[in-house]
Structures are given as structure tokens and as C-alpha cells.
Design a protein around this nucleic acid. Sequence first.
DNA 1: TAATGAAAAACGAACGTTCGTTCATTTTTC
DNA 2: GAAAAATGAACGAACGTTCGTTTTTCATTA
Lengths: 197, 197
Amino acid sequence: MSKGEDTRQTIIDTAHKLFTRQGYHGTSMRQLAKEAGIALGGVYNHFSGKEDIFRAVFMENHPFLEMLPAIEGAQGETIEDLVHDAAAQMLAAIKRKPDFINLIFIEIVEFKNTHTHEIFETAFPRGVQIVARMEEAQGSLRAIPALMLIRAFIGLFFSYHLAETMLGEITPPEFRENAMDYQVDILLHGILERSEE
Amino acid sequence: MSKGEDTRQTIIDTAHKLFTRQGYHGTSMRQLAKEAGIALGGVYNHFSGKEDIFRAVFMENHPFLEMLPAIEGAQGETIEDLVHDAAAQMLAAIKRKPDFINLIFIEIVEFKNTHTHEIFETAFPRGVQIVARMEEAQGSLRAIPALMLIRAFIGLFFSYHLAETMLGEITPPEFRENAMDYQVDILLHGILERSEE
DNA sequence: TAATGAAAAACGAACGTTCGTTCATTTTTC
DNA sequence: GAAAAATGAACGAACGTTCGTTTTTCATTA
């Protein structure tokens, strides 16, 4: 890795930390440069500006993109196994970068979902393929449109995060630990029962 | 309503519009004053500053607070009716102020859930009471802790909003119209089946 | 009802600060 | 030794807030 690539990565990592903790406008280029250990002007040798830095941080750390290969490689036989596998991948991605949710909110507020739409455009054709494979695998999900399942998974992702941020402190520990499993069970039972109607 | 109260409300309404459309930092006090039809300095006769304005906008328009009286007055006999009623109230609140979700994101990013926690502190004792009444009403929800049901409802609220913002454009119209009903059905079936185990 | 006067509200110029970015220059890399 | 990277002072613009002043409001009084 060349010197340039090295400091570029340092800037991205530092920005990730600062943006999640302090927000976009709460983080100045001066503080970012200082904490990354380089001079203010030097940042502009690697990025065209502050927005460019956020974009790099967002795109190169997004859990949805991280998840996809793992989900595609899921080996489960039944629908239940596949959904549980996918949920486990999601939970792992969340726990790997628990603060990334803040970057998603920043992106919505500051960038109006521009980057998110870009991610979905590349990720969703693959996502739909995955669900199509699931439908082939077993019949019980055939009645569930792929998009609805994906919406349900997005709901899973955000409701986990938001319930944690908003209600984490007043939720008993044993619930917090099992919250994701609990929500997956609800989703699974709900989807399966609905699809059998 | 006195003149002062009148302009105060005008400021709040204008700020609501601008904050949801342009974000917090994207809205300057100058633009806010101009669009509200008063001078820059005049704003400070009614609010101590920009943060105070956001707080007022957030607190006086939050759908969770709007929903509570209606939910408390719900007349449904069975659990299914009560959940459907509550979900209908939520959907009505969402449709009444579809842009408020942006204020929630701003609040998370800029104010670190300070105001949200305050709302939950006042709303949740009542929320838990409501669920307690539901548990009395019929047995099938007895196994579901109230907090989990509330988490599920928060998930419902956010997954509806987020799926709409992120996937609305690529979702077929007939799904978008029925998305909330669909999610409620999944939730209901999932919760009821789970609680019968 | 009309006059009054203190408080409330409106005004807009001015202040001090901070921000993202640029640039001429020096240092390092390979 | 040419290109890449790093430096930090300087720039101009925009921001939230303050302040001295003027205007309006409205309960009280005549």
C-alpha cells in the first residue's frame, strides 16, 4: 500500500469515527485533519472536499453491501434456515459496526438518500435474485413478493437499531440480548402464516 | 390568540417546513425569518435560539404524542382489533405529517435523542398502561412483554417510513398502498403465533 | 368610549466566530 | 529528478446572535 493510499485510509477511518460521534456539521475539516495526523490542506490531496469524504466513508463501510456476499453464500436448505442465516448475517454486520446507523441518518438528512439509492440500485438486483432462489428452494414463500421480504428485512435492521437507541436504556438486559432473535421469529411466523393463506 | 402567540406559531410552522425539506444546518435563521415574514432579530423575541426553535417544532408535532390519546380511547374488543386500531392511528398520524420522519432523523443526528428520550419518558408509562389493558382484555398476548410489543410498533413506524423513502420509487403502487396493512398482518400473525407457543 | 403608557414585539445593522477551500511553497516518495 | 504528498497561512462567505432603536399592542384609566 503506497503512502497516499495509507493516509487516504487513515482519513476515512478518522472521519468514520468523528461523523458517527459528532455528526456531519459537528465535525470540521480542521478537527478531522488534526486527528488524522495531517495538515489541513493535505486532506485535499486525497479528497475533493468534505462531501467526498463522507461519500467514501459511507460507501466503503455500508453493512448492506458487506452482507450481500455472505447472504448469497448461505447454505440453508429450508426457507426458515435461509431467513435465519440472513438475519444472523445482518446482526453480525450490525455488531461489527454498531455506530454505522448514525451515518445512515446523516446520509438521509444531509444527502437526501442519494448514496442510499445508489447502493440499492446495485444491491437490489442481487437481492431480488437471492429471494428468487429462496422461492425456488421451497414453496411456502412463493406467495410473498420479493420486495416485501426485502422491506421486511429493512424494517428488521432499522427497528433493531432504533429500539436500541431509543429504548435500550429502559429495556431489561435479557430482552436486549434476544431482541433480534425475537424480531426474526415474529417476522418468520408472520410471513409464513401469511403466505399460507 | 395574542399577536405574540400568533407569530410564534408562524415561526414554528415555517421552521417545520424548512427543517424537513432542507435539514437543520441547511436552514439559516435569515431564511427562516424571511419566510416567516418577520425580521431576523424578531425571532429572538419568541425563542432563545435556533435549538429552541427545533425543540418546539419537534415537541409540538411528534406523532407518537399525537397518537396516544386516540390509542387510549380505542374501543376494540379483541387483541386483533386493538392492534389494528393502534396501527390505523399510527398510519393516520404518518399520513397527516409524512415529512416528520425527517425531523426524527435530525433529532437523532443533531441532538442525540435528547428530546426523543424525553418524549418516551412521558409517553411510555402511558404506553405500558395501554398494553396492560390489552393484556387484561384477552389472554393471547399475555406472553408478550409490553416492551416488546412497543418495540415492534416502533419498528412498524420506522420500517414503513424507511422502506418508503428508500424503496418507494421501485415499489409497485399496489404494494405501497397496502404496505402498512401488510406489515401489520405480519406483525399480528407473528406475535400471536409466538405468544401461543 | 377615548386616552394613556408601559410592556411586548419588530426591526435591521453590526459583531465575532467558524467554516470549507485555495494556494504558493516545501518535503517526501519512489 | 519528476511526481506525489504535506504544509499552514490566508481568503471570502455564511452563520447565529446581540443590541440600540422604533413601532405596535393592549390592559388600565379617565
